[in-house]
Design a protein around this nucleic acid. Structure first.
Ligand SMILES: [Mn+2]
Ligand SMILES: [Mn+2]
Ligand SMILES: [Mn+2]
Ligand SMILES: [Mn+2]
Lengths: 148, 148
DNA sequence: ACAACATCTTAGCAAGGGCTAAATTTAGGT
DNA sequence: ACCTAAATTTAGCCCTTGCTAAGATGTTGT
C-alpha cells in the first residue's frame, strides 16, 4: 500500500557507503607505511624504525607496534634489531599506493591548488579514491598537460 | 659543511601532513553523525538511535557509545530513552559538513564520475579536503555548470 | 490493563593506534 | 677492548570504535 520503503533503500545505500569508508580506514595506515618504506629503501638503502618514526611524526614504539601488525599481515619482514624489508605483497601495495598518491597530488595541482596544500590533502584523499575516480583524475591531468 | 639537512626538512613536512590526517580522522565520525542527525531531523522530525544505526550500518550499541562521546564533546544533547538533538555547535558543524559534502559530490560528478561512485567516494574524501581545495572544487563545478 | 514488541542502555569484550618509561641490543669512538 | 650513545624492543597505559548479550524502558494493540 505505502510505497515500498524507498526510505529504507536509501538508508541501506548510505550504510554501504559507510562500510566502505570504514574498510578504507583499516588499510590506510598499511598503505602509507609500505609506501614510505619503499621510498626510504630506494633513497637511503634501508628503512629503519627511527626513520619511519621521524617521517611519520610518531614515536619509535608506535612504529614498532605497527610494523608487527604489518608483519602479521604479510607485508613486511623483520629480524630483531634489524631494518625492515618489504615482502612481494608489500612491494606491490607500495607501488600501487605510490602511483595513486602521485596521481591525486598531480590532479590537485592541475586543478589549481597550491602544491603545499596539494601535498597535505593528497595524503588523506588518496585512500578514498576508487579506481573509477582515479581514472577521471588521471584523464584530467593529461588533458591539462596537453593544453599547456 | 654538508648541505644543512634538507632531508630532515622533508621528513618534517611529511610528518606534519600525517599529523593532519590523524587529526581529520578524529573528527570524521563526529562530522558524519551530526550531518546525518540534522538530515533525519529535517526529513522525519527526529533522530533516533535505531535510525542512525540503520543509516550508518552499525549496531544500536555502537551508536549509543558514539552519541555519548558527542554529548561529552558538546555536539548533541540527549535524555534517557529519548531522541537526539543537536546543540548550536552541533548544528553548525552539521551545516558546514553538509555543504562541504555536497560540493565534493557535485565536483566528482562534474568531473565525469558516475553518481553512484561519486556518492561512495565523497563520503570519505570530504573529510580530507582543505578550504583551499574546496574552493577549487566549487570553482570547477560552477565553471562546468555555466558551460553546459 | 497488560502482554508483546520495539527501542534504548549497560556490561563486557576485542582490535587498532597512540603514548611514556624502562629494558635490551647494536654501533661508534677512544 | 670497552664505554657510551643510539636504536630497538617490551611493558603498561589510554582512548576510539566496533561487537554481542542481556537488562531496562517505552509503545502499542487488544
Ligand atoms: Mn600515500
Ligand atoms: Mn596517506
Ligand atoms: Mn558527509
Ligand atoms: Mn563522510
Amino acid at each position: 500500500m505505502c510505497p515500498p520503503d524507498d526510505l529504507n533503500a536509501e538508508a541501506r545505500r548510505h550504510a554501504e557507503r559507510f562500510q566502505r569508508v570504514r574498510e578504507a580506514h583499516q588499510t590506510e595506515l598499511a598503505e602509507d607505511y609500505v609506501e614510505l618504506i619503499a621510498h626510504l629503501i630506494e633513497e637511503t638503502g634501508e628503512a629503519r624504525v627511527v626513520d619511519l618514526a621521524g617521517w611519520l611524526g610518531v614515536t619509535n614504539a608506535t612504529v614498532n607496534n605497527t610494523i608487527q601488525r604489518l608483519q602479521r599481515d604479510g607485508l613486511v619482514t623483520t629480524k630483531p634489531y634489524r631494518s625492515i624489508f618489504l615482502t612481494d605483497a608489500g612491494r606491490e601495495l607500495a607501488e600501487q599506493s605510490r602511483k595513486r598518491h602521485d596521481i591525486v597530488r598531480e590532479f590537485l595541482i592541475a586543478l589549481g591548488v597550491d602544491s603545499q596544500t596539494a601535498d597535505i590533502d593528497a595524503e588523506g584523499i588518496e585512500h578514498h579514491v576508487s579506481s573509477a575516480t582515479l581514472k577521471a583524475f588521471a584523464k584530467f591531468v593529461n588533458k591539462a598537460r596537453r593544453s599547456t
